[in-house]
Design a protein around this nucleic acid. Structure first.
Lengths: 330, 330
DNA sequence: TTGAAAGCGCTAACAT
DNA sequence: ATGTTAGCGCTTTCAA
């Protein structure tokens, strides 16, 4: 069906190996011969079969990336940054979304491994990564980003300072006089959510009140219900700390214009254009992607040091919503 | 290095072909034998080498997707939808961002083709796709999405009704009494931008004034400059029509709170939470992705009909900004 | 500078 | 139910 090197060789009247030399830019081919070969390639529309090459060479120049959801701006930003580094290294990126399902995460990782990626960057959805053992033993470097691997696996990780960021947000609100600060976040089974809860709780100390905590997948109705319940308390919250970008948006929508002090984890486009501007603890997804990818390539270049655990700082962006004063319950 | 079927076979004391049968779930293996094989697989940490399989079978169960930028919400939404369809068909998606560079687009396409993808979905950056000829002749189906291919190639396309949407936006603003409506859009070399300009111009008819048109890559300073120039005219615009999502956001930021009637092309998150809510002509990127992917799989199943040219409708979302009345120049 | 032969790991076709 | 053999398209090794 498709032309092969053999076809090109006979069209150009040379041996297969000569075609291989031309295709791969190897030296030692007479310019005129090379020209003939190139003409045959163009004429036949030849394109090298990468599978055959990979099979023979044993290396794929391919990196695998598993994220939670490409359509989430945090992960698409991370993705783009990883892609840029991967391209810089002359490799191809395979990526896929786990949709927060451990089974799908594993499927993706295994698919990538079957394609013999040279390395993997994983934002895990599950908490059991023993299935990675054979890969690690085969020498495939793996970097975990955004969330650490499950117990029993000590590999490179690149995480944000989730607890520290949460502490910062709470400290900021406390500084503006708030004493009743609610936390609305994702399911506590998710590492980042539980870390942010931890920071929140640590900083609040004795002010912590579990009635002001809501952790679940973000749906507008659920958030509205939880908020309603909190505001109906005798001592309702005067400020909100939202546990991630999607949560912040959902909460803003559920608030329907009600002015309550709010700091969100994760920056998002237009946060500055809302009224008031939304103060956030900002992560830098592109930075995380870049750091993870560069660490991976360092491993691929042979750096065999002990696993590294990189923690990226986050920073508070003051825009207005986090600086509203506590108001009396109405 | 890594265990192969041969290794598994000798570990399990069977022939290589038996291992192949177990790995591929082929019938005709004694359960006890199969069990022994599976044990050997687990023990050795065997994973099938996909390159070898592909080389032998000639089919990859892989689809390639070239978009402009994963970090753009329009394309990440499209991407996610394509991925979902591809997974449903038991295939793997390879995707990459062209960054609006024709050279990179071609590189990606050629990389994917060298990996022998079964089909391609392309959002083109360039306007010469003759390089696709060999692929098309080899029988690889290609679907263009969001933008059509360059001249001389008649393949399946899935586009939005760009001109119709622009006409609708302008008609809407005219209905609210506006006569001076500016268009701020991307470089006219980009298909969607020029189509939207065309719709805008057609609907405006005699009211068209080229001084109210600005087409260039969106940077905040440039947009601010162009807006300043337009507003300084004797008869300044009373309404703006922005040519895509990124442009709308950039324009809102450049307006810095100034209330001017505005309709944007492309919906975006939080458009409803701004004040006033931003009226837009909304496309559905997920729908476009789904339609393109399904068309591609129809081709893969053997549908050899003439190229289809699908145009997806868009719809106006009324939220406030597009319904502001013309105000007197201040 | 060029070529012939072996073999990467797998599946298809054909035995047994 | 199981095994043997050939060969996918390429690169590697060795020879001319």
């Amino acid at each position: 069906m498709r032309p092969t090197m053999k076809d090109v060789a006979s069209a150009a009247g040379v041996a297969l190996k000569t075609v291989s030399r031309v295709v791969n830019g190897e030296p030692g081919v007479h310019p005129a011969t090379a020209e003939r070969v190139r003409a045959a390639i163009d004429q036949l529309g030849y394109s090298r079969n990468e599978s055959a090459r990979v099979l023979r060479r044993g290396t794929t120049a391919t990196i695998g990336l598993v994220i939670e959801d490409v359509a989430d701006p945090f992960y698409s930003g991370l993705s783009r940054a990883v892609e840029a580094v991967v391209i810089d290294h002359g490799c191809l990126l395979l990526s896929g979304s786990s949709g927060e399902e451990p089974g799908r995460e594993r499927e993706l990782v295994e698919t990538f491994c079957a394609r013999r990626v040279d390395g993997l960057i994983v934002v895990p959805a599950g908490d059991d990564h023993t299935y990675l053992r054979p890969e690690l033993e085969a020498g495939t470097p793996v970097v975990f980003a955004d969330r650490p691997p499950g117990a029993g696996l000590d590999v490179d990780t690149v995480l944000a300072d989730n607890a520290g960021g949460a502490r910062h947000a709470v400290r900021h609100l406390l500084g503006y006089g708030h004493r009743r600060i609610a936390f609305l976040g994702d399911d506590a089974a998710i590492f980042t959510a539980s870390e942010r809860l931890r920071g929140y709780q640590e900083e609040l100390g004795g002010l912590f009140d579990e009635r002001l905590v809501s952790m679940r997948p973000p749906s507008e109705e659920a958030v509205r219900g939880d908020l309603g319940r909190m505001f109906a308390l005798d001592d309702p919250p005067t400020a909100l700390f939202t546990g991630n970008g999607r949560y912040t948006v959902t909460t803003l929508r559920a608030l329907a214009g009600r002015r309550v002090a709010l700091v969100g984890f994760d920056d998002f486009e237009l946060a500055d254009l809302l009224d008031p501007g939304v103060s956030v603890v900002a992560q830098d997804p592109a930075w995380m992607g870049r750091v993870a990818a560069e660490l991976l390539f360092r491993r691929l270049r042979g750096d065999g040091g002990p696993p590294e655990h990189i923690e990226l700082p986050v920073r508070l962006m003051v825009r207005g919503s986090g600086e509203l004063p506590p108001s009396l319950p109405t």
